[in-house]
Write a protein that binds this DNA or RNA. Sequence first.
RNA 1: GUGGGUGUAGCUCAGUUGGCAGAGCACCAGGUUGUGGUCCUGGGUGUCGAGGGUUCAAGUCCCUUCACUCACCCCA
Length: 418
Amino acid sequence: MSFQAPKGVKEYVPPQASTFYAIRAAFAETARRAGYSYLETAVFEDTQLFARGVGESTDVVSKEMYTFTDRGGRSLTLRPEFTAGVLRAVLEHGLHRGQLPVKVWTDGPVFRAEAPQEGRYRQFYQLDLEAIGSEDPAVDAETIALAWQWYTTLGLTQVRLLLNSLGCRECRPIYRARLQEFLRALDLDEATRARIEINPLRVLDDKRPEVQEQLADAPLIGDHLCAGCKSYHDRVKQLLADLGIPWEDSPRLVRGLDYYTRTTFEFDHPLLGAQSGIGGGGRYDGLSEAIGGPALPGIGFGLGLDRTVIALEREGVEPATPARCEVYGVALGDEAARAMFTLVNDLRAAGVAADMAFGGKGLKGAMKGADRSGARFALILGERDLAARAVQVKDLTTADQTEVPLAQVVDVLKGKVQ
RNA sequence: GUGGGUGUAGCUCAGUUGGCAGAGCACCAGGUUGUGGUCCUGGGUGUCGAGGGUUCAAGUCCCUUCACUCACCCCA
């Protein structure tokens, strides 16, 4: 075959795809129980939405966007993250005119033009949850708790929660200036020196040991929070403690998107190597204004599905997936195949997961298919059975076989598989 | 974008100083035309990632390229 998926595009096929689907379904349940509604937003947006929302100075916007011009000459960009688009949709459809906070979630593919490696793809998948319109530490704690609950539900035990506050429009500028002053005195390469002027907080995130050494005495945002931010942050931590959710204070956690304010968090997994961040998010109180909306605070997160799947593999956890087939039809001969087709359809209508052998397979091949389908029961129907208006029901786990009248077989199986 | 590693069957991988492409698992057929999973017999299912070069001869050596992967960077 002369085609393959574009570079860096992660695909999920059976059987692994069932895990992928199952963990999304688990999140849907987690979000539903907490009063979050599902919404589906544009996969591509006006390029300016991301430039203004995420920030021109970020790596995501400056060098990782898939941007193209459509036939009308508009500049469009495949979403590199969810928050800006979700907020845009909430404002556009006026959801914020109702009761606040607006609590929504969505999921789907996200795109960034990066060099792919394990856990980092050009088309990857995120779950996104946002609570828009309330400035309340309980909302911050709720979002974090929901992500935590999801990881727990999946069976992950090694996820770490890193927590920080980035301050607000009052205290952050003062800290920022102080930090710049400190950083300018260091011995750093040109790219990093440029970053000092554009987004100095991100220099703190540098992983290079020679940089980290110099940062040992760097001023920390935690020591410069205003009274409001300080008490807000303390309250968030108090509520997390009430829920028994452990976190690590991470005074240098900055994250790459410009819109974050106050509460900022990241979920890390120790078994993932360099791409250890499996989820992250934070508060974005200025984002709405930045994209031309009203003052509207918000908080939310993105959870990486791809990295979560890897984390599950590394921890050796296999989320339960629903049985794909409970009853498998094996027919001998044309007339029996016709009757079986109807029977399988009736079983499905009655809520029983049913499949049958296709392609005119012989008995042996069809039975093999029954075995591989994972079905508990095989239904065997031949000329003799048709004449007797009955079907052979074979329990594949015990090899016990009984004859059941055709008219009763749906009800009988319905009882057996429950 | 920058460095390193790896590309051989559906999967995991062997393949010597260049000399007829292999193993296990999976898959297909038969043993058994009314019985799967066990067992027995048979079958290799392949553009050795792709393109070019050296050579009597290339999976093996050289060049280019693509993909994956690890790290930087970045973040989910």
